[in-house]
Design a binder for these strands. Structure first.
Length: 602
RNA sequence: GACCCCGUAGCUCAGCAGGAUAGAGCACAGGAUUCCUAAUCCUGGGGUCACGCGUUCGAAUCGCGUCGGGGUCACCA
């Protein structure tokens, strides 16, 4: 950045782009400008310090359009008084043509009011960038592996999986939009003993299909969804499987039932509009010379494994605790609470051993950033995974484990009872059928992932303001209805795509307020992506919808604020272009969340 | 016994990498449709940010501790 204040106080064009240039993020733009201002005033200032101050909308709109704490952040290390630094910055920005006023406030804030043209540029940018308004390269093209769902392939998806599925999917979209190279991955737990049980249960269904009367022992999977798999086996093999040696037969049944279960799960996910890039099978890690063998060998070379004994957990000693020497991973060296076993007493690998190998595999595939979305029952697993990734990558890779807390299903304020025994198990398909994919997704994303939540069927189905999904979609539909009306009644005043629009008539406080809300979108997306918090997008959309509904209602009492004004072509065109921008941003946000943006509500 | 998450208005929850008088929706009270979908909007009352101590110019936000709610706790997956 060149120094930009000359002796006469004139500004370098490079520092202040002219109005026709594209403005993606007003806040980022001013962050840059304030940074160069500080640099010109204090040439020795550390870049690290400049990265720390923020430019944001003040909580109280009366304080202006933008606010920065730069003076307070910078003052102390420089041995200056924050208010004086703020004052100096204020003086500096008097020459900025985009700034109407810059006033120090409180302990050293600096509040900016911007001239209307810069807000008009924001509208022009939305218009020009369309779906890309909000897109950024903060991810710098780095590869990220987002693993989510990873439900056991032993049946259709249970509603408990829905939250993680939706969360992971939205997060992946958000990160892709923010410039990460994202891979969406599903880890198929197809190697454990539950799969043997599944195969056994399926074989019973096969015999049933052949006409036998069967009884399903406890511990087996009783679900009806295995019946078609049994029938398919009959169709493929007739009764020949009965005579095949058990080992071979189990292998065949396993193969078929796993494929069938994954089809079931993929279908469930598709109903929620969720699609993965990679389905990674745990089984491929096992076997002689497989990834687990290799990984454990490698860990042993690194001295990360030893043979030793574990203390039984205090307070709640398991009944069948067997004190034995076992193969342990030095998880405590990487921040875990205890070292973790890798080999079971029967000689096979633990689930965690496979998981270490799996995450080493991710690392070797080139992922230095990993995100795992897990259910609340896995919270105790987090430190272990972090330890594994650290060990396996020698600290080069990071993993963020996002735990999705429980969802309590409600009906009219009452907990909705589910029980496996009565077959009253709620599946993803049940929920989607009941309330639809849009509402399911939005409601689950309208909460932080780490707090437990209630999901009330009654509210989700309601079409009122109580229901945020509907509220946001309604705002979008309203923009569409306006355009239908405009095209119909004042076609000459309706802006078309790519048309350059004169926004200068948008000067009322109502107009500018709405535009300021739009202008926040890029920073909201970026911060949501960095923090791995999709709910920020959902909340923003609600805020934007509210701003739009509010503007709409103002037109009811104040004719000057109507969108369509048959006497004023310039104003109407500008207003409609603003509506188009609202529509665009709503669309961009809903798309990221995987929720549709309908033009009409039924 | 240990670990993880949560504790903000009557209810459900936001509060973005500490910042200026803590926000929204519901509920409650009142108001706005000869006017672009009132499926909406506007106004109002309501909070020791669980509690205590600490760090700081400044803490709902960071640290430690206590209390309360939820989840988990060798070899299951």
């Amino acid at each position: 950045m060149p120094a930009c204040l000359t002796g006469s106080g004139l500004w370098d064009r490079a520092t202040f782009p002219r109005p026709h240039e594209m403005i993606m993020d007003v806040f980022a733009l001013f962050h840059d400008r304030i940074g160069s201002a500080l640099k010109s005033m204090f040439p020795d200032i550390a870049d690290e310090l400049l990265a720390r101050f923020v430019v944001e909308p003040p909580r109280d709109a009366a304080h202006g359009d933008l606010s920065t704490n730069a003076a307070m952040i910078v003052a102390k290390p420089l041995g200056k008084n924050p208010r004086e630094v703020a004052q100096a910055l204020a003086e500096y920005f008097k020459a900025d043509p985009d700034v109407a006023s810059a006033e120090p406030a409180g302990p050293g804030f600096l509040n900016f009011r911007l001239n209307a043209p810069i807000w008009h540029q924001v509208l022009a940018s939305v218009q020009a960038l369309g779906p890309d308004f909000g897109k950024s390269d903060i991810g710098k093209g780095e590869r990220v592996n987002v693993e989510y769902v990873s439900a056991n392939p032993t049946g259709p998806m249970h509603v408990g999986h829905t939250r993680g599925a939706v969360f992971g999917d939205a997060l992946a979209s958000l990160m892709a939009y923010s410039g990460y190279d994202v891979t969406r991955e599903y880890y198929i737990n197809d190697a454990g003993s539950q799969i043997d049980t599944l195969a056994g249960s399926t074989f019973l269904r096969y015999r049933e299909a052949l006409g036998e009367t069967i009884e399903i022992p406890s511990g087996f999977y009783p679900g009806d969804y295995l019946i078609p798999v049994g029938e398919a086996l009959k169709a493929e093999f007739g009764d020949k499987l009965l005579t095949v040696p058990e080992a071979e037969r189990t292998a065949i049944v396993k193969e078929r039932v796993l494929a069938a279960m994954m089809d079931l799960i993929r279908a469930d996910l598709a109903q929620l509009n969720i699609h993965h890039d990679v389905f990674f099978s745990e089984r491929q890690l096992h076997g002689k010379g497989g990834d687990i063998d290799l990984t454990l060998g490698w860990l042993r070379e690194q001295g990360m494994i030893y043979e030793g004994r574990l203390e039984p957990p205090k307070g709640k000693t398991p009944d069948e605790w067997e004190d034995r020497e076992q193969t342990l991973f030095r998880a405590t060296d990487y921040g875990d609470d205890v070292d973790r076993p890798l080999v079971k007493s029967n000689g096979s690998y633990t689930y965690f051993a496979a998981d270490i190998a799996y995450h080493r595999n991710k690392y070797l595939r080139g992922f230095k950033h990993m995100v795992n979305v897990l259910g609340a029952d896995h919270s105790g697993y987090v430190k272990r995974l972090e330890a594994a990734v650290k060990a396996v990558s020698k600290g080069e890779a990071d993993i963020d484990v996002r735990i999705c807390q429980l969802v309590r299903l409600m009906k009219n304020g009452e907990p909705f009872k589910m029980s496996k025994r009565s077959g009253d198990l709620v599946t993803v398909a049940d929920v989607v059928e009941e309330v639809g994919s849009d509402a399911t997704r939005f409601m689950l994303l309208y909460r932080r992932n780490d707090a437990s939540m209630d999901f009330d069927f009654a509210i989700v189905k309601e079409q009122t303001r109580d229901n945020p999904v509907f509220y946001v979609q309604y705002a979008h539909a309203r923009t569409a209805s306006l355009f239908r009306k405009a095209t119909d009644e004042v076609p000459a005043m309706t802006p078309v795509a790519g048309e350059s629009v004169d926004f200068s008539t948008l000067s009322s406080s109502a107009d500018l307020e709405l535009i300021r809300t739009l202008a926040q979108w890029p920073r909201i997306v970026a911060s949501a992506a960095l923090a791995h918090e999709p709910h920020r997008v959902a909340f923003y959309l609600h805020e934007l919808a509210s701003a739009f509904h509010g503007f709409w209602a103002k037109g009811n009492t104040d004719v000057a604020l109507r969108f369509i004004n048959a006497e004023d072509s310039t104003l109407t065109k500008a207003r409609l272009a603003m509506v188009a921008a609202v529509r665009q941003v709503l669309n961009n946000g809903l798309t990221l969340l995987g929720v549709s943006a309908p033009d009409e509500l039924s």
